[in-house]
Structure formats: C-alpha cells, structure tokens
Design a protein around this nucleic acid. Structure first.
Length: 440
RNA sequence: GGUCCCAUCGUCUAAUGGUUAGGACAUCACCCUUUCACGGUGGUAAUAUGGGUUCGAAUCCCGUUGGGAUCACCA
C-alpha cells in the first residue's frame, strides 16, 4: 500500500476557526500516525473573497497549533492546468455551457420548492438550439458551465459513515465555471487531489453530496478516487458551527491563553468514544487516532468546556512540555502550575517571588508576631511547619484565621500554591518585610 | 419539499438480542493540605415516542417526534 497523503484545503476567505481547525487536525493526525504526507492547499479560486491577510492568519494558526505541512499549493496559480482539463471534459461532453442568469436560476429553484419538488437543475441548457445560443450570445450573455452527472448510483466506502450511496438523479449538475470564467471549488479540487496524489480526504459532513459529484469527476478525468472520511459537524449553542458560520477564531483562543494542545486534544477526542484527556504533544495524540471510534452523531462544542479543559491541561503539564516556552526552574513550575488558569499567569508568581509586592495586611498584630518568629535561613522542609506551630502556640490562632492573613501579607493574594513551598522561593528578607506591611 | 445522516446520564460516549445499562468530563459529598487552589475517594444522574419481531429489545423492523447536512455562478 502506498503512503498516505492528505491535504488541508482552506479558502482564505476568513480566519481559521474551530470547524476548520478540527478538519486540519484530523488530516494532520492521519498523516503523522502513518508516516504520511500533509499538504497545505490554499483554495483561493474565489477572487472576490480571498484575502492575503486571511491566508497569512491561516498559516499563523496552523503554525501555532503545531500542524506543520510538508508541501503546499495554491489554486490561483494552477488555472492553466484547470483549463487544460476543462477543455478535454467539454470535448467529452461532461461539461456543458448554460445561459441562465443567477436570478433566473433562483426563480426556478423557488418555483420547484413551492411545488414541493426538489430544486434540481433541469438541464434545459442541454436542449438549447444553436439559434437560441446565438441569440443569448448576441444579448451579451456569457455562459457558465456545469458538470454533467451520469445516471446511476454513486457508492463509496466512507471511513466514518460506512457505505454511502447516492442516486445521481437526486443531485444537480454542479456549476464549475462562473460566467466570468472563474472556477468554482468542485473541479479544481478534484484536479489537484488527483495531480498531487491525495490518498485520503477527511472533511466535514457538509461535503457528502459534493463527494458524490466529485467521485464522478475523478472518474471523468481518469484520476484515482481517494478514500473519504466525513466527520460529523460540530454543533454549538447557536445551532450549527460549520466552517462558514464558525464564530470562534483560533487566534482569538490563542489570545485568551487557551493552550494549542488543549485545542488539539479536545477537538481530536470530542465526539469519539475516548475520554477527552490532555495530550502534550501532537505525535502521541496522532498515535491514538482511530476512525472507528468517531461517532456519527453531531457533538456539541462548548467554548467554556474547552477553556476548562485547557486549564486542566495546564495544571497537569509536565515541565518537559513547557520548558522551552518559559524561563523557569522545574521546581518553580511544579510549585505553581496547580494554581494557573493559563500559562502566562505564571509571570505573576515570578513577580511575587522576585519583585516588589505591596502586602495586604488583614491582621497586623498577627503578622508582626509572625515576622518576629520567622526563623533565619537556611530553611528546610520542616521550617514552615515549625514556624506556624510556634505562631499558633504564641497567639492561639489556627486554621484559616492563621493562614489567610499570612498568605495575604506574603503574596497579596488569597489563593495560591502551598505557602510551605512558596516561602523558600521568596526568601527571608521579603517575607519579613511584607509581614511588617512593608513593600518588598 | 427531495435526498442523506443522527437520537443512551447535564455533556462526549460504551454495551457480537440476555449487564445491577459501563466509562470519561461536569456536578455534589467526603478525605488530604492546621487556609485557598492542586490532588485522592465515593455518590446523584440516561436508553425521545408508539407499534411490531422475540422466551427476552438500548440493540432488529415500521411509524411518529425532534435535530442536522445538502439541494449556491461559496468552499
């Protein structure tokens, strides 16, 4: 069996969001699990809506997530190839010109719908006489082109949905070239997948009927039909969350401090029979990929749950997974990680240990007494317990009454890592001063 | 409306026709920590609905209801 080659083919008409990202992740995972090839293809056939800034943002998003690609292509640079194929398909009678305007087509669809009929194109363009075509041309009408679907069943084995079957008569002949001569998504995508030797296409369920049409296109151009996998679409509070309605941008999540591995772990496992557990590198996540474990129902995506999961991931993150991103000692990371919501919060603990802090004095007498009893360094593991026992013995305060004022004075916060481990990181001088209400 | 897909705890799901319907996340309780957080241990909680097949149905069949996709000169 030849090596697996997959592609992620975003159109640069918007930012990368959850729906997109999920597709990218599954493709990447499939490639990496099998030592295959992951290609980035920019589907920029829509000149109106494609923007360089979106393309840039998509690349940035992929890089941030760690979804590296082995090669790339851009559809806007391949028009010559598309024309070559199109010419041949016109000769073969698989592509035919149509002269209806967008308004006329819209009207026809509405008419059929109100009659309770499926809004399928009636192929009237195929019945046009030469004279009629001439009249249209003289009117200045420019044709758009459709791909003619052959009658019969279209069947494929889907890695997620099992056997899929569509009758061609239930599908409209897809428009593949606009009246202005530009290409629509369908055919270029098939030509590219064929030319680049894509073996597996993993995409959202919104593409299933496209797949039916595209299988005939693969056959028409003499290409090998790839293996398909259609992921159930994610839903959210606001209903659907397809790539066009996607509201949650990856870069926004980054901005909020959501961990990239939280996004990957969450999206790769949501809707599968496996638990959503933190993974700290993509390769080990890839090794767990199993299409049989993906359900067919539409899972609900919750941004809140993702944020929660990300926090969980941070609090359990091994030092090895973070050491290249922060300038911290392992001991320090292990001490504070259980109190972080997002990684960048660790700076505030660095500051508390190494910079001036304005203490919050809740009980001045107690803190003063505690300062007086604070033993000189060096401190060992028992120092903290001995010190607090002594304070308790001399003042009679204990439990929350004792620890809350100490914590507030020393860290200016009412929650945080164990004081026992935090104290040595701050040091005698700062602790002593802060207990006395002095900024230190 | 046509075509296609889906329906089990709050959420994601497991259960070759026979299970006390299991797990994970969330939640709650308790424990640990002489505070908070982290962590640990337990508990609550589900087969949409009506028929049928069967000794026996979450599971198979039909209907109903509900959800989603698609039917673009978007991708």
């Amino acid at each position: 069996m030849s090596a697996i080659k997959v592609r992620f083919a975003p159109s640069p008409t918007g930012y990368m969001h959850i729906g997109n990202t999920r597709t990218a992740i599954f493709n990447w995972l499939l490639a990496r699990k099998n030592g295959g090839h992951f290609m980035l293809r920019i589907d920029d056939t829509d000149k109106e809506r494609s923007k360089p800034e979106y393309e840039k943002a998509i690349r940035e998003s992929l890089e941030w997530l760690g979804l590296n690609w082995d090669s790339e292509a851009k559809q806007s640079k391949r028009f010559e190839r598309y024309e070559e194929v199109t010419k041949k398909l016109i000769e073969d009678g698989r592509i035919y010109p149509c002269y209806e305007t967008a308004e006329e087509l819209d009207m026809m669809r509405k008419k059929l719908m109100t009659k309770g009929l499926p809004p399928i194109y009636d192929r009237s363009a195929l019945k046009l006489s030469a004279e009629q075509i001439e009249i249209y041309e003289k009117e200045g009408r420019k044709p758009h082109y459709r791909f003619k679907l052959n009658d019969g069943d279209i069947v494929w084995q889907d890695m997620i949905r099992g056997e899929c079957k569509y009758e061609a008569k239930n599908l409209s002949d897809p428009v593949i070239i606009r009246a202005d001569g530009s290409y629509l998504y369908h055919l270029p995508s098939v030509i590219d997948d064929s030319d680049f030797g894509i073996t597996h296409i993993v995409r959202g369920e919104d593409h299933v009927t496209n797949t039916a049409a595209q299988i005939q296109m693969f056959e028409a151009i003499g290409g090998k039909v790839p293996t398909f996998a259609h992921l159930p679409l994610l839903t959210g509070q606001e209903g659907k969350l397809s790539k066009r309605l996607g509201s949650i941008g990856v870069l926004d999540l980054k901005e909020r401090g959501i961990e990239p591995m939280a996004i990957s772990s969450y999206l790769a496992k949501l809707g599968t029979s496996e638990g959503i557990l933190p993974f700290y590198d993509l390769q080990s996540l890839a090794m767990t990929l199993d299409f049989h474990k993906i359900g067919r129902a539409q899972p609900k995506f919750s941004e809140e749950e993702l944020a929660h999961f990300s926090t969980h991931l941070v609090r359990n993150m091994p030092f090895a997974a973070i050491k290249d991103r922060v300038d911290l000692e392992e001991k320090f990371w292990e001490t504070i990680k259980g109190n972080l919501d997002i990684v960048s919060d660790c700076q505030q603990w660095v500051d508390i240990c190494c910079k001036e802090v304005k203490p919050v004095i809740e009980n001045a007498d107690l803190c003063k007494k505690a300062a007086d009893l604070l033993p000189q360094e060096p401190w060992n593991d028992d120092t903290f317990a001995q010190w607090t026992s002594e304070i308790k013995a001399q003042t009679g305060t204990k439990g929350k009454e004792l620890f809350h004022p100490l914590r507030l004075a020393i860290t200016a916060k009412d929650a945080g890592p164990e004081l026992k481990t935090l104290l040595p990181l701050i040091g005698y001088e700062r602790v002593y001063k802060r207990l006395n209400g002095i900024v230190a």
